[in-house]
Protein backbone atom coordinates (compact mmCIF):
# COMPACT_ATOMS: atom_id res chain seq x y z
CA UNK A 1 0.00 0.00 0.00
CA UNK A 2 3.03 2.25 0.26
CA UNK A 3 2.86 3.22 -3.43
CA UNK A 4 -0.76 4.42 -3.23
CA UNK A 5 -1.36 7.78 -4.81
CA UNK A 6 -3.81 9.25 -2.32
CA UNK A 7 -4.88 11.93 -4.79
CA UNK A 8 -6.87 9.48 -6.82
CA UNK A 9 -10.54 9.41 -5.92
CA UNK A 10 -12.62 6.32 -6.50
CA UNK A 11 -16.31 6.46 -5.72
CA UNK A 12 -17.77 3.05 -4.90
CA UNK A 13 -21.53 2.73 -5.04
CA UNK A 14 -22.14 -0.31 -2.85
CA UNK A 15 -25.32 -2.28 -2.34
CA UNK A 16 -26.20 -2.34 1.35
CA UNK A 17 -26.95 -6.07 1.25
CA UNK A 18 -23.63 -7.26 -0.14
CA UNK A 19 -20.65 -5.09 -1.12
CA UNK A 20 -21.26 -2.56 1.63
CA UNK A 21 -21.37 -5.38 4.17
CA UNK A 22 -18.24 -6.86 2.55
CA UNK A 23 -16.46 -3.54 3.04
CA UNK A 24 -17.65 -3.52 6.63
CA UNK A 25 -16.38 -7.06 7.10
CA UNK A 26 -13.05 -6.06 5.56
CA UNK A 27 -12.81 -3.43 8.26
CA UNK A 28 -13.75 -5.94 10.95
CA UNK A 29 -11.08 -8.31 9.69
CA UNK A 30 -8.55 -5.48 9.63
CA UNK A 31 -8.01 -5.94 5.91
CA UNK A 32 -6.61 -2.79 4.37
CA UNK A 33 -7.99 -1.35 1.16
CA UNK A 34 -6.88 1.83 -0.64
CA UNK A 35 -7.93 5.03 1.17
CA UNK A 36 -8.80 6.46 -2.27
CA UNK A 37 -12.09 4.58 -2.20
CA UNK A 38 -15.07 6.58 -1.00
CA UNK A 39 -18.04 4.33 -0.37
CA UNK A 40 -21.60 5.42 -1.07
CA UNK A 41 -24.18 3.06 0.35
CA UNK A 42 -27.19 2.46 -1.87
CA UNK A 43 -30.17 0.22 -1.11
CA UNK A 44 -29.54 -1.91 -4.21
CA UNK A 45 -27.39 -1.41 -7.30
CA UNK A 46 -30.75 -1.24 -9.10
CA UNK A 47 -30.91 2.26 -7.58
CA UNK A 48 -27.70 3.14 -9.43
CA UNK A 49 -28.51 5.93 -11.83
CA UNK A 50 -26.48 6.86 -14.90
CA UNK A 51 -26.58 10.41 -13.62
CA UNK A 52 -24.95 9.48 -10.29
CA UNK A 53 -21.91 8.21 -12.17
CA UNK A 54 -21.78 11.22 -14.49
CA UNK A 55 -22.03 13.60 -11.55
CA UNK A 56 -19.17 11.78 -9.85
CA UNK A 57 -16.97 12.12 -12.94
CA UNK A 58 -17.98 15.73 -13.49
CA UNK A 59 -17.02 16.46 -9.87
CA UNK A 60 -13.58 15.03 -10.51
CA UNK A 61 -13.77 11.39 -9.49
CA UNK A 62 -11.13 9.31 -11.26
CA UNK A 63 -13.15 6.14 -11.25
CA UNK A 64 -16.50 4.77 -10.22
CA UNK A 65 -17.10 1.28 -8.89
CA UNK A 66 -20.57 -0.19 -8.77
CA UNK A 67 -20.61 -3.20 -6.48
CA UNK A 68 -23.70 -5.35 -6.21
CA UNK A 69 -24.77 -8.85 -5.31
CA UNK A 70 -23.68 -12.01 -7.05
CA UNK A 71 -25.74 -12.79 -10.17
CA UNK A 72 -29.00 -14.36 -9.05
CA UNK A 73 -28.63 -13.20 -5.44
CA UNK A 74 -30.14 -9.71 -5.67
CA UNK A 75 -32.39 -8.92 -2.71
CA UNK A 76 -34.71 -7.26 -5.20
CA UNK A 77 -34.33 -10.08 -7.74
CA UNK A 78 -32.64 -8.29 -10.63
CA UNK A 79 -31.41 -4.90 -9.48
CA UNK A 80 -27.80 -5.95 -10.08
CA UNK A 81 -28.61 -6.96 -13.67
CA UNK A 82 -30.17 -3.55 -14.25
CA UNK A 83 -27.00 -1.99 -12.84
CA UNK A 84 -24.83 -3.96 -15.29
CA UNK A 85 -26.75 -2.46 -18.21
CA UNK A 86 -26.55 1.04 -16.75
CA UNK A 87 -22.81 0.71 -16.26
CA UNK A 88 -22.54 -0.26 -19.93
CA UNK A 89 -24.51 2.86 -20.85
CA UNK A 90 -22.18 5.01 -18.76
CA UNK A 91 -19.23 3.44 -20.58
CA UNK A 92 -20.81 4.48 -23.90
CA UNK A 93 -21.42 7.99 -22.58
CA UNK A 94 -17.83 8.26 -21.32
CA UNK A 95 -16.50 7.30 -24.76
CA UNK A 96 -18.69 9.99 -26.37
CA UNK A 97 -17.61 12.57 -23.81
CA UNK A 98 -13.94 11.75 -24.35
CA UNK A 99 -13.15 9.89 -21.12
CA UNK A 100 -11.93 6.31 -20.81
CA UNK A 101 -14.69 3.73 -20.45
CA UNK A 102 -12.46 1.79 -18.04
CA UNK A 103 -13.10 4.45 -15.41
CA UNK A 104 -16.33 2.71 -14.44
CA UNK A 105 -16.76 -0.94 -13.66
CA UNK A 106 -19.34 -3.28 -12.19
CA UNK A 107 -18.39 -5.81 -9.53
CA UNK A 108 -20.36 -8.65 -7.96
CA UNK A 109 -19.36 -9.10 -4.33
CA UNK A 110 -21.37 -10.94 -1.67
CA UNK A 111 -21.41 -9.81 1.96
CA UNK A 112 -18.91 -12.49 2.98
CA UNK A 113 -16.37 -11.62 0.25
CA UNK A 114 -14.28 -9.12 2.21
CA UNK A 115 -10.99 -10.08 0.57
CA UNK A 116 -12.61 -9.89 -2.88
CA UNK A 117 -13.83 -6.40 -2.03
CA UNK A 118 -10.29 -5.41 -1.16
CA UNK A 119 -9.03 -6.99 -4.39
CA UNK A 120 -11.66 -5.11 -6.41
CA UNK A 121 -10.68 -1.75 -4.93
CA UNK A 122 -6.99 -2.45 -5.55
CA UNK A 123 -7.75 -3.48 -9.12
CA UNK A 124 -9.74 -0.29 -9.68
CA UNK A 125 -6.88 1.78 -8.29
CA UNK A 126 -4.41 0.03 -10.60
CA UNK A 127 -6.72 0.87 -13.51
CA UNK A 128 -6.79 4.59 -12.73
CA UNK A 129 -3.08 4.65 -12.05
CA UNK A 130 -2.60 3.21 -15.53
CA UNK A 131 -4.88 5.66 -17.33
CA UNK A 132 -4.12 8.70 -15.19
CA UNK A 133 -6.25 11.23 -13.33
CA UNK A 134 -9.61 12.49 -14.51
CA UNK A 135 -8.77 15.43 -16.81
CA UNK A 136 -11.96 17.18 -15.71
CA UNK A 137 -10.52 18.01 -12.30
CA UNK A 138 -10.12 21.71 -11.74
CA UNK A 139 -7.33 21.22 -9.24
CA UNK A 140 -5.11 18.26 -8.53
CA UNK A 141 -7.61 16.85 -6.08
CA UNK A 142 -11.17 15.81 -6.52
CA UNK A 143 -13.85 17.10 -4.18
CA UNK A 144 -15.01 14.08 -2.26
CA UNK A 145 -18.07 15.80 -0.89
CA UNK A 146 -19.30 16.40 -4.42
CA UNK A 147 -18.39 13.09 -5.94
CA UNK A 148 -21.19 10.93 -4.67
CA UNK A 149 -23.90 12.55 -6.77
CA UNK A 150 -26.48 11.70 -4.12
CA UNK A 151 -28.46 14.15 -2.08
CA UNK A 152 -27.26 14.44 1.50
CA UNK A 153 -29.25 13.00 4.36
Amino acid sequence: MSSVNVDYQIVAFCCQYCAYAAADLAGGLRLQYPPNVKIVQIPCTGKMDVLYALQAFESGADAVMVAGCMPGDCHFLEGNFNAVRRVERVKDLLRQIGLEAERIRMFHISSSMASQFVAATEEMLRTVEAIGPNPLRVSGKAHPQETCGLPSG
Binding site: V50, L51, L54, F57, E58, I97, G98, L136
Partner: peptide, 18 residues
Amino acid sequence: AREAAILAASLRMASKLN
Protein backbone atom coordinates in the same frame (compact mmCIF):
# COMPACT_ATOMS: atom_id res chain seq x y z
CA ALA B 1 -35.84 15.34 -17.02
CA ARG B 2 -33.32 12.55 -16.48
CA GLU B 3 -32.20 12.50 -20.12
CA ALA B 4 -31.92 16.30 -20.09
CA ALA B 5 -29.67 16.14 -17.02
CA ILE B 6 -27.55 13.35 -18.53
CA LEU B 7 -27.17 15.21 -21.83
CA ALA B 8 -26.34 18.50 -20.09
CA ALA B 9 -23.70 16.82 -17.91
CA SER B 10 -22.24 15.01 -20.94
CA LEU B 11 -22.04 18.24 -22.94
CA ARG B 12 -20.44 20.12 -20.05
CA MET B 13 -17.77 17.46 -19.69
CA ALA B 14 -17.18 17.05 -23.42
CA SER B 15 -16.83 20.81 -23.97
CA LYS B 16 -14.46 21.11 -21.02
CA LEU B 17 -12.30 18.31 -22.37
CA ASN B 18 -12.40 20.06 -25.72
